[in-house]
Design a protein around this nucleic acid. Structure first.
Length: 299
DNA sequence: CTTTGGCGCGTTAAACCGTC
DNA sequence: GACGGTTTAACGCGCCAAAG
């Protein structure tokens, strides 16, 4: 693979144009004249060796390649922001910042709840939360773009150490008025013949859930599937079927669907990802303790 | 140490192109 | 035809490394 000689200024211009959707506005945001940006963009395109924008009706329309490249650019700029943040902290001698990444499901309910609790006891600490795919969470920790990452599946990364923090049992959610809504505990056998809303094939929760039903010899009517617990909750609420989701997503949806315990108990383990070789900051340790506490309340 | 030439980046002015 | 937007052309400035 041949490498490309890039100037940061060109990348800046590209990013600005992608964000602002126009060269003129990008120029404004960069504090330079519009032709300057146009030029940087042209040079950048020449450097990368493929078209980043289609000129349609006198407007710039990003190509598919531009979008792919922009994802990497954004990641790079997160790294730059980290430099700026570090400088700011050193200057102000502030206690610290905690950058947390979590999978979409964890970042929807669970982590905000922990952060709220944590923030009450640690004012002066900046906490930021990023929602990502599981692999990206671990990747961010490995690349030191985040201090702590929270995931369910075990994902290996040479620079990252994963530690199990605790388990929570998955809950069964059914639409209101459903025949299973009257039961105290829903068993695998109860789900026989039911329309079932699943996580995506090959995902960790999907694999575990399917195995439970296979082991119990229960056949469900497999229908819709979705990536996020929140989507699954919405599907169940709309009558697409019943489902198993983590207890926090279920608790957050208690007003919209009926939440039941499920037997056999199907535990999901929440893991924290941290940099393998580096003593953790006291702030991060304190945050992890809060996570364990909140997990404990969910049993 | 100074000069020189190349390079990156910026500017303004003007041309150009759809759209309203 | 005015307008908003992009591109092109011509040029200036500062930096840097090589040459004198």
């Amino acid at each position: 693979m041949t490498t490309v000689d890039l100037r940061i200024r060109q990348v800046e211009a590209f990013r600005a144009v992608m964000q602002q959707r126009s060269v003129t506005r990008a120029a404004e945001s960069l504090g330079v004249s519009q032709p300057a940006v146009s030029r940087l963009l042209a040079d950048f395109e020449a450097s990368v060796g493929f078209a980043l924008f289609a000129r349609r009706q006198g407007r710039l329309v990003p190509t598919a390649e531009a979008h792919v490249l922009n994802e990497e650019v954004e990641r790079a700029f997160i790294g730059l922001e980290r430099v700026a943040q570090a400088a700011g902290q050193i200057r102000e001698r502030r206690r610290g910042a905690l950058r947390i990444a979590g999978t979409f499901d964890l970042a929807a309910d669970f982590l905000p709840r922990v952060i709220a609790l944590f923030a009450r006891e640690h004012d002066g600490v900046d906490v930021s939360l990023l929602a990502l795919e599981p692999a990206a969470v671990v990747e961010h920790v490995g690349a030191q773009r985040c201090d702590l990452g929270f995931v369910v599946p075990l994902i290996a990364h040479p620079q990252v150490r994963l530690e199990a923090l605790g388990q929570w049992p998955m809950r069964c959610i059914v639409p209101r008025g459903h025949r299973l809504a009257r039961k105290r505990i829903v068993t695998a056998a109860d789900c026989a013949g039911e329309a079932f809303v699943s996580f995506l094939k090959l995902s960790e929760p999907r694999t575990k859930i399917d195995r439970i039903f296979a082991d119990s010899g229960v056949t469900r009517q497999m229908g819709v599937e979705a990536a996020l617990a929140q989507s699954i909750v919405a599907l169940v609420e709309a009558g697409a079927g019943i489902a198993l989701v983590d207890p926090l997503s279920a608790a957050g949806a208690a007003a919209r669907v009926v939440v039941k315990r499920f037997s056999p108990v199907l535990p999901e383990t929440v893991h924290v990802a941290r940099l393998a070789e580096q003593s953790q900051s006291m702030v991060a340790d304190a945050f992890v303790r809060h996570v364990v506490t909140v997990l404990g309340h969910l049993r």
